[in-house]
Design a protein around this nucleic acid. Structure first.
Lengths: 217, 217
DNA sequence: GTCTATAGCAGGATAGAC
DNA sequence: GTCTATCCTGCTATAGAC
């Protein structure tokens, strides 16, 4: 193995371990020492490969987060296309499926949302990256897709708020696992997650009104 | 002024400033030096009054967060009582009103949700406190209130998921302000917040299905 | 009770050997 | 490219003067 290949492997390991630790504990709670220990390389490696802790953090988003988000979006677009319609129902179902099940493994998804949520609560330069390269194009496309399918009178703002509300649930049920488990008494096993997807779709389409087929007054 | 009163004032200032900083930056990113500087007292005061940084953090929840949450819950109960009914609509409206407007000032509410969200993402002993003293009694009461009003077939789990979904939106629209602003183009001024409350109530009751169809005005 | 001074340690970053 | 050794800064916590 050439030195170059070896170097690349070290870099990859650093990105992987850094992502896991940043997602789990947050930027400030993680030390470079901790990352390099877990990645089984030298303390100086972070500086050599990335130029510092901050830049490693940004690179995690550039090299890991953004590509993963794009995989999810691709999955969503394909799921929607497969349904052959862009009705609110179809969009909601495709959204929920892509973001709650989709192409990501459980652990990947958890990391992904943890990192995102940290940036939402306390935006850094990484948020800029995410907003420009991921959020903006996605929402732009989504708005275009939905506009034709939604009622005429619905303004762009209401449309966006609807989409954001679906995201709110997706993020929450991924992020607030402790609270959800505490309140429902359910562990996050496969069966429960399936019920969650079902619930999010149902709630997104009909709100409380849809529960148990009752009409709101 | 007695020394005891002076000491109490220092303690209060420390709790206030600590809460603001912990909410804004998170536990790890805040140093005791920073807190004591802003609170205009000595570096050693945190240790003297609370016994360390960790214990100060816990005290913020005990002495500030929990009482505030109880004020919100009280507001909710009174709002619900004022409507004279416990229909899903009434409950949703009372919830949204209490948690999005309610008795808290804007800044207070923002702090409150920031602290909560941090604990959700990375629970510490403070979460235990919140879960036992605030969440558990609240959800227990809420479930009891709603059970009679909801359709027969609706299990406890679905009921709880519905309530959690409303919370998901409440938290999200408070927490993810940057993203919401980015996507809708709206600043969080009074008018926008009113539209948000309206949206959350509408979405909670009818989901996407309600959008535009029954246009109020 | 409050403050200064400092102990004692962990952090990020880097220089220089290999 | 990698590693060791080290610098320097900033942290929490505490001892002891006032």
């Amino acid at each position: 193995m050439t030195q170059k290949e070896k170097s690349e492997l070290t870099k990859e390991r650093l990105l992987n371990e850094a992502e896991a630790l940043f997602a789990q504990k947050g930027y400030d709670a993680v030390s470079v020492r901790e990352i390099t220990t877990v990645a089984r390389c030298n303390l100086a490696a972070v500086n050599y490969h990335f130029g510092g802790k901050r830049k490693l953090y940004l690179e995690v988003f550039r090299a890991r987060w953004v590509p993963r988000a794009e995989r999810v979006q691709k999955h969503f677009r394909e799921g929607l296309a497969a349904q052959g319609s862009a009705s609110p129902t179809a969009v909601t179902q495709a959204l929920a499926e892509a973001f709650l099940v989709g192409p990501l493994s459980d652990e990947e998804r958890h990391r992904h949302y943890q990192l995102m949520t940290r940036e939402l609560g306390q935006p850094t330069e990484a948020f800029e990256l995410v907003a420009e390269q991921v959020m903006r194009p996605f929402f732009k496309g989504l708005a275009k897709t939905l506009r034709t399918a939604m009622p005429e009178g619905l303004g762009k703002e209401r449309l966006m708020l609807n989409i954001l509300s679906i995201f709110a649930m997706v993020l929450y049920f991924n992020f607030a696992r402790v609270a959800v488990t505490r309140i429902t008494g359910c562990e996050y096993d496969l069966a429960f997650k399936e019920r969650l997807v079902e619930h999010i779709v149902e709630f997104s389409l009909n709100g409380l009104g849809g529960s148990g087929k009752e009409k709101p007054e």
